[in-house]
Amino acid sequence: MTAELTTESGPRTPPGNPETRHGRRRRRSGGNGQARAAVLYLAPAGLLLIAVMAYPLYQLVQLSLYEYGQAQASGGAPLEFLGVGNYAKLLGDSRFWMVLINTCGFAAVCVLGSLTVGIALAVLASRVRWLPRTLLFLAALGAWATPAVAGSTVWLFLFDQNFGLVNEVLSGLGWQGMAGFSWTYDRFTAFGLVAGEVVWCSFPFVMVTMYAGIKAIPGEIVEAASLDGASAWRTARSVLLPMLRPLLIIATIQSIIWDFKIFTQIYVMTDGGGIAGQNLVLNVYAYQEAFAGSNYGLGSAIGVVMTGLLLLITGIYLWAQRATGENT
């Protein structure tokens, strides 16, 4: 089917023209051999993708169209087709919109934070000697390798209201208001705390990627720029940045996808979404609304909406990048 589709999508030829018909047929038979080889090469990966991606996605979309809870799954109640009912219910729920805004804002802060910290440290690492660089990398890899649950719990210990090191140090330094300060009580300090943890465990990826990119830029280019009289800022902006752009795009997309799907940190650090659900993000919301309450239909609808949103955001970002890339 793939081969057929690709050949069919060529330029349209008026029917009845024997010569083009003939030509087309010949091209098709030649293309067929190539297409068959391509299909054969792609088959293992394709089968795997269908098994682990397409089928679950198909089930997800299908579930989202039904009233499907535990009772339906185990045969205690008949299936009921809702069509877009789950979606209508979701979009009509004001909590969903609040959670969506939370998620977008929180992900944006985390992406910006990890990019800034990661790039800054990558630049730093490319400029310092061997020993400090090794220490920096060890620290970063340590943060990167820490499991999310362990990292979140350690951060919670550090920021504990009564016994936390941070409050003790701050109040020891003379900031009396910080003794017994609750970091998870206020909505924004709670988000800030979790964002800190997320940045802490996700900047190493950006740092390592960007460091590799910086190291791959030949010294002659920088030298040429400085011979032409470019300032350090100018070199960074007009020479280095364009060369790093592909890596930057990858790092950004990875971070967007990763931070948009945050679950563990929020779930652990704000105890399942914070006071009165003030720190809920989409993934935790989906878990609570749907899976803990075994309302799988609605949960699937949230999953579909999330997938769509992520594709949309990434698409817009790629498109914007390509547009600016062409201008410069």
Partner: peptide, 27 residues
């Protein structure tokens, strides 16, 4: 091309609506 699009859409719609999600026969 139009034919394929229509067919694909029809198959997808049938799959989504026709056979529902899995259910256990609980007797």
């Amino acid at each position: 091309m139009r034919f394929w699009k229509l067919t694909t859409a029809a198959i997808a719609a049938t799959l989504l609506v026709g056979c529902g999600p899995p259910q256990v026969d609980q007797s």
